[in-house]
């Protein structure tokens, strides 16, 4: 086997735990789209074209809640902003790739593929990084799309899928992501602000409340950061 083939298989193999771990979410996502009254093709299109788990889940509640297009697009942008940090982190290695591969590779830069690739960067640097990344990303992508289809078409067959409470999967996952981060004053204040504004702004049209709440939370975080910096500067003086 050539080095490239070996690297591609290594990428695939290192991604397996995450591929398996996200499979239930792909199935639930597919079924959830159908339970929201949308066609199964919408689930497949979202997984194939957008390929961003948390943004995909949020889009269902936005579309189902009658959000306007700019709100859907802007929310997707904000939810995925963290990927800019991933893009910056992998850039020193990906800069050696030909441009077409960089254009294509950027499409697959999910949380999962980034986590796997970043570990590889630490141990192997840029060596065979393109085939490794492709092995990781393509296998993860195909698995996500395939199980989305299974969930969507199975969900279509199950009567009463809308009453199963599949939407709770997203709520539980997000709660589980947030909770461990609430160890310091700033993230607690950010969460409390965002949560309170989200409740108060619930009645706003086009689901604008979500954007407003997120913005309020980030503003409080930035203010607290500034306040802490000033405090540290005064103590040092």
């Amino acid at each position: 086997m050539s080095n490239s083939t070996t690297a591609a298989f290594a990428g695939l193999r290192d991604t397996i735990p995450l591929t398996v771990g996200t499979t239930p979410f792909a199935i639930i996502f597919g079924a959830l789209v159908v339970s929201a009254g949308l066609p199964p093709e919408a689930a497949l299109a979202l997984s194939t074209i957008v390929f961003a788990g948390s943004a995909q889940f949020i889009s269902i509640s936005l579309i189902g809640g009658g959000a306007a297009l700019p709100v859907i697009w802007l929310t997707t942008f904000v939810v995925n902003l963290r990927h800019a940090l991933y893009s910056a982190t992998v850039q020193p290695v990906t800069k050696s790739w030909p441009l077409p591969w960089r254009v294509l590779g950027a499409f697959w830069l999910t949380d999962e593929c980034f986590a796997v690739f970043e570990r590889r960067m630490q141990t192997a640097g840029a060596a065979d990084s393109l085939p490794y990344y492709l092995g990781s990303a393509v296998s993860f992508y195909l698995n996500w799309v395939a199980w989305t289809a299974v969930g969507a078409y199975l969900g279509n067959l199950i009567p009463g899928v809308a009453t199963l409470g599949l939407d709770f999967a997203m709520v539980a996952t997000f709660a589980a992501i947030i909770a461990p981060q609430l160890k310091a004053l700033t993230p607690v204040a950010v969460a409390a602000t965002a949560g309170a504004v989200a409740l108060l702004a619930q009645g706003l049209p086009y689901k604008l409340g979500l954007m407003l709440a997120a913005l309020a939370g980030v503003v409080v975080g930035v203010l607290l950061d500034g306040w802490r910096r000033r405090l540290a500067a005064e103590e040092a003086a």
């Binding site: 902003l81 963290r82 980030v218």
Partner: peptide, 21 residues
């Protein structure tokens, strides 16, 4: 630094109304 607050803010803004309402 502002980006660092985005995940907690967005995810909480989604979770709280879903959980309470």
């Amino acid at each position: 630094q502002a980006l660092g607050h985005v995940p907690v803010a967005v995810l909480t803004a989604i979770v709280v109304p879903e959980a309470l309402m």
